[in-house]
Design a protein around this nucleic acid. Structure first.
Lengths: 360, 360
DNA sequence: CTGAAAGCGCTAACAT
DNA sequence: ATGTTAGCGCTTTCAG
């Protein structure tokens, strides 16, 4: 009677394969895992090794190889992905990242930091060999990389709240996009334009507000007083901040248009507006920012940012940095790239309403 | 004049730290990386090591540790994430996965397989030590795990097209959810209910269609003829399949309601319907399936699946499996868990329309 | 063409 | 309480 065959607890190794094939582990390595500089293998050995590998279901161990290569072929993505509501913005950049990473044979591992003050402690922990470089999505970290990122940790930012010295960044043109949107509303004849902006402390939100202001300035029109609100970049934010404002302005004319600093905020506004029975765009025009799936679904007019492209470019820049690091070339470490935005007209824009409409 | 200080190409190791502190690498390991069985360290050594580590900015190398531990503390997620349109379904399950994984100190790396026939070749490659286990999202693979998954590769499926023998699976109650939706439409008085179902070959889509049929059967009503369509689970799918159907049925009464097999399909239908000038729900009621962000945003009535919970449970099940594997316990390898669904009424449901309405 | 030896950074087991 | 040895699975010299 033979022993109860305890299942082997580990996968076959090169040594196992070599033993099975009657050759050295090294030969097996040469056959199975690419081109050891100048090691040629006889036809016959090659076939024995291949057969043994097949039989043993050999799979190369990537951690072992990484230890030697100092390279995992994995990219890290860090951001705040899930708050209370799913983050469409994230999803679209992520799509772009996955595309480009896939095309370049890189995996991506996702790190969800709860907030950016913790991140400063957490992110360095991720730079421990399991990934070759980092994409930081919308980081809010002011300190220069040299103060908190490990050395030789290639990284790029996308939509950094503020440029992180030492880390190249990708941005889209927030100010210009906002200018586009508000100029268009002005051109349609709207004057009482409410800006439901992003959170205080966000440079992107500040820039969008500045675009709003410049549009008025360049049109030679004085912006209406108390028509700028700020809230988180979420539907909840839009919902929560709009209602009190309406209450506060009861009896005054309803704004003719709302420029929301994100599609999510626009969604929140839309819900409140519809709940009050206002029609969009007949009673009030609405324009968002981002052109996420939501804007497409809700036929929301918006300012399109090239979200997928941002993701794809981030991967390319990061890989360039990684290669530079590994070949000890100096990388372009402070490059800032700004991508253009464009207006997308859908169903939520119209000219000023016909009749007077006061806030109830 | 000193040499141009070439930047060190590698991070500090335990050996470096030990050297700096004047102790062995082993002592440094004991101090810095937890509890080596019975190795106590003197106060003084500890502090020297800590200081050295600080000075050298020591970071433990995870690939090295993984080689020893046979554990990366990383989970793999494989699915088809990005087709032509962002996948909200994915996003919500992913959110749940990230939550649970984060809580358990696991990273997650995402593998985007283009399709499930390639996956069968690709997935085994991912089981090479960089992850400890795999969550497969909506796999369409019929072959038993033993035929293609490496041994000792813990895995769970979520919404597997068909149970993969040897791999525990998480499902939601497709048939029951569809039954719920259609029964409700019937109760509202609708009879000509069009089912825009998921793709042929998808068990989930089949089950939803069966739920549709059972609802009629149990209500003792004969389903209308030629009122079942099948298309991909996307908005594009809904859009593409609905129009030809309407054309084919020109002159007949417009269906009173549509039961779409996913929110994305519902979205596609909604767009076509609105383009034709039909009002929802006055002219035609609409109900989706999934309760993704889109349904919430568009105020689409739908069947809610616990997407986030599915993700969280998948992580817990997978971790249990991994631990079982590592301690050589037998895991519950064929468990199937089915989670309930529920109806969510929003703005796209109403009773039958007042006036006759023929397809134009 | 092939094998032996050393080492990637870490930890477990066994000395001291 | 601390150091030494060996080895995780792989690759890269360097000899044969």
């Amino acid at each position: 009677m033979s022993e109860q065959p305890t299942r082997p607890r580990r996968a076959a190794t090169l040594a196992d394969v070599g033993r099975e094939a009657g050759v050295s582990a090294m030969a097996a390595s040469a056959v199975l895992n690419g081109v050891s500089t100048s090691t040629r293998i006889s036809k016959e050995t090659r076939e024995r090794v291949l057969a043994a590998a097949e039989k043993l279901r050999y799979r190369p161990n990537r951690t072992a190889r990484a230890l030697v290569d100092r390279r995992m072929n994995a990219l890290g993505l860090v951001g705040i992905l899930s708050g209370d509501e799913p983050n469409l913005y994230f999803l679209e950049v992520f799509d772009g990242i996955m595309q480009a990473a896939g095309a370049r044979g890189q995996n991506v591992t996702v790190f969800n930091v709860g907030n950016w003050v913790d991140a400063r402690r957490l992110v360095p922990e991720y730079c421990d060999g399991r990934i070759d470089g980092l994409i930081m999505l919308a980081p809010m970290i002011d300190a220069p990389a040299s103060e908190w990122l490990p050395e030789h940790a290639p990284a790029v930012t996308v939509h950094a709240n503020r440029a992180v010295p030492g880390v190249p960044g990708l941005q889209s043109d927030d100010e210009g996009g906002a200018f586009l949107a508000v100029s268009h509303l002005l051109r349609l004849g709207h004057r009482r334009i409410l800006h439901v902006g992003g959170p205080e402390g966000s440079t992107g939100a500040d820039l969008r507000q500045q675009g709003y202001e410049r549009a008025f300035r360049e049109a030679g029109i004085t912006p209406p007083p108390d028509h700028v609100l700020r809230c988180p970049f979420t539907a909840e934010g839009g919902r929560t901040v709009l209602e009190p404002w309406l209450l506060r302005h009861r009896g005054e004319p309803l704004p003719e248009a709302i420029f929301a600093a994100s599609d999510a905020i626009a969604l929140g506004c839309m819900e409140r507006l519809q709940a009050r029975g206002y029609r969009i765009p007949e009673d009030i025009a609405l324009i968002g920012f981002d052109n996420t799936l939501f804007a497409r679904a809700a036929r929301l007019s918006t300012v399109a940012q090239p979200l997928g492209k941002l993701g794809r470019m981030a991967v390319e820049m990061l890989l360039a940095l990684i290669d530079a690091e590994q070949t000890r070339q100096p990388g372009a470490e402070d490059r800032e790239v700004v991508l253009g935005t464009e207006l997308v007209e859908r169903a939520t824009l119209a000219g000023p309403r016909a009749a007077e409409l006061l806030i109830a």
